[in-house]
């Protein structure tokens, strides 16, 4: 119980706030019909998670969460939504795949039931923040994080970078227009 003693009222308040923000956003993504509103709900979730990161003293992660996810990725989502003109309410009464919704409901219920059952059987330990050591470098936790990423986890870091480059090149190749004669042939094929 001494783990709980380290938790103060502001801690709880901030956690509740961030959890409420994330959950409200997550539910919003599913519930709202307008894609732009859904993207905004996603931003709210990301913001809530950033608040939780600050509470966990992971300032760098919190900042990166906002800069990268909210500041770049969701902006691109919105950009695409606006540019392609799909920013209209969708008709949800039609099921794209027959029997999709009952199947999804059954699967979700099964998954939740198994998670709850596991929680009872397996004695999961989900401790408060004090269970991991605090990162206390001279220059905040950024220096420690940088050292870890560029020494211990260098391979994983570089592999991820390589993966992203491959993804970008793949996207460029896929988006490229085929050569003109070939394109004409393709158009003819498609037209028939």
């Amino acid at each position: 119980m001494n783990l709980l003693a380290a938790v103060t009222i502001p801690d709880v308040a901030i956690f509740v706030l961030s959890a409420a923000l994330s959950l409200a956003g997550a539910v919003g993504i599913l519930v709202v019909k307008n894609p732009v509103h859904a993207a905004l709900s996603l931003v709210m979730t990301l913001f809530g998670i950033a608040v939780a990161f600050i509470e966990l003293q992971a300032d760098f992660l919190a900042a990166v969460q906002i800069i990268v996810y909210a500041g770049a990725i969701v902006v691109l989502f919105l950009f695409v939504i606006m540019f392609l003109g799909v920013d209209k309410r969708e008709d949800l009464s039609v099921e794209p795949i027959v029997g999709q919704r009952p199947t999804a409901a059954v699967l979700v219920l099964g998954l939740m039931a198994s998670i709850i059952a596991l929680g009872f059987i397996g004695h999961f330990e989900v401790g408060p923040q004090a269970q991991t050591a605090e990162l206390t470098g001279a220059a905040g936790n950024v220096a420690d994080l940088g050292r870890a990423v560029f020494t211990t986890y260098l391979f994983a870091f570089e592999a991820t970078a390589g993966l992203l480059v491959i993804a970008v090149i793949g996207a460029v190749v896929l988006a490229r227009k085929p050569d003109a004669p070939k394109a004409a042939a393709l158009v003819e094929e498609g037209g028939q």
């Binding site: 900042a63 906002i66 800069i67 220059a139 905040g140």
Partner: peptide
Amino acid sequence: PPMGILLVLA
């Protein structure tokens, strides 16, 4: 805050 200048970018 320790993240200082990152807040500006955020």
